[in-house]
Design a binder for these strands. Structure first.
Lengths: 245, 245
DNA sequence: CGTAGTGTTGAGTCAAGTCAATGGTTGTGG
DNA sequence: CCACAACCATTGACTTGACTCAACACTACG
């Protein structure tokens, strides 16, 4: 069941949480879009600009990002294939942060007006998209906690768990082992640490057998223990179908 | 034009960003609710429970909160009179965090089903509420940056600026001086520092004339400078009316 | 085979945390 | 109206987790 239509993955990822009827699926697949292949680190959304298109990741990874005026970067969220990268700005007239490609990949750009029209006309799709927005907000909240109140190793373990869980939910990898799309510097930017400290902490974790690394592949011999250390509780990902309204 | 109806403040706060017609206002004011006076630190939303009511702050302040398994608390957001405290869970079947009263105050509890019905039937109100959800998400993102990438004094300055700006926008106080509803411990929990370190940092800031304190009242002799130090850029609050859709 | 991007490691520093004691405020009840 | 309790703020001495700077090694790719 490989995806022939670029927006297929979006439909699949939305229906993880809100079951979609055939009509709703078709309505999404009927959205207009322009398809583009992008280099790693290309901007999909730019802070300060009006968001006119909503990018949908067809392949590759992306990340949300803000920087302080001194230039320190903070990664706010990670995005996986099937994620729509700009639902967050559907109702805002100016982007308050940027989104960039993490790896090379393909993006389907849907005009925001078309998305807004669909949301107005199809309550089922609307519900799916609002749920998605709410889940993303929940992930932001967990990140505030992660970065504000956990130690280095817990923080790092936490992003690694989140990534594993989400990749697994989409069927793109197994939670206990996957190809890590982040450099150590990017991990640092995601958890509010320096690259050097991330390196040292990863080494410790490796030495203790908590994680195994081979090139960019990372795996967790004891997923349970990993979750404990991270304080990782899947609840905030709201993976179960949401029975609401 | 003092608010006789408990939901008046909600209408006012929503219409800061999305202009509301008379019909839309009336629809909101017609929502059913139960009114309650609450002690400080009472729970309005409890993590792990299904969110059946959406509390609207009529008076007093509240905060969103998550804790690590070791018991460290992180405050995720602050809520002011007029804020609906649980739009975030409108589409989620289980709460992923808690909301508590920061001060004593009054809350109007609106049944979630009524809110959902209104959102389905009135596109204007729907837009206002979705915009509100998106703005809150934007605030979460800024907090990730604040806590992840700024120094102690910048972090503290940043929450103080945000609070001032928001109080000012609602007409509840002036940005450059207001009654601070937070203890130093709560400030610490909001910015990911210890109470002791917050105390020392506030002292430094006072000594340098950056802030003035008298009991719980705080003021900023040089708002500009304060914003610079905080790296505070109002954009993320999306205060201007959102011209969208 | 060279170059640019990553990853690794060491030495020294510093921002923030911990522990602990003291002082000030506020509100409450006798 | 005072005394007490609970909560909050202040300060000092000491520790530590994370940062900085800097050098070097590995890998991939043209």
């Amino acid at each position: 069941m490989s995806a022939s239509h670029p927006l297929d993955l979006l439909v699949q990822s939305l229906s993880l949480r809100v079951p979609l009827s055939g009509t709703a699926r078709d309505a999404i697949l009927a959205l207009p879009f322009t398809f583009r292949s992008l280099e790693s680190s290309t901007y999909i959304v730019r802070e300060g600009q009006p968001p006119e298109q909503c990018g949908v990741l067809v392949s590759g990874f992306a990340y949300r990002q803000k920087t302080t005026c001194e230039g320190a970067r903070q990664i706010i969220a990670l995005h996986l294939p099937g994620d729509a990268v700009d639902f967050q700005h559907l109702f805002l007239s100016i982007s308050d942060h940027s989104v960039q490609m993490l790896t090379a990949g393909e993006v389907a750009f849907v005009p925001r007006s078309a998305l807004q029209a669909l949301v107005r006309s199809d309550p089922e799709v609307a519900k799916a998209i609002y749920t998605q927005i709410a889940v993303e907000a929940s992930i932001f909240r967990e990140w505030v906690l992660n970065v504000g109140r956990r130690q280095a190793r817990e923080r790092i373990a936490h992003v690694l768990c989140e990534l594993g869980s989400r990749l697994d939910a989409l069927g793109l990898a197994k939670r206990y082992g996957y190809e890590l799309p982040l450099t150590q510097e990017q991990i640092g930017d995601a958890v509010g640490l320096t690259q050097v400290h991330v390196n040292r902490t990863l080494k410790e974790m490796t030495d203790e057998g908590l994680i195994c690394r081979d090139k960019r592949r990372i795996s967790f011999p004891d997923w349970r223990r990993m979750c404990e250390i991270a304080g990782f509780n899947e609840r905030y990902l709201h993976m179960q179908p949401q029975m609401v309204g």
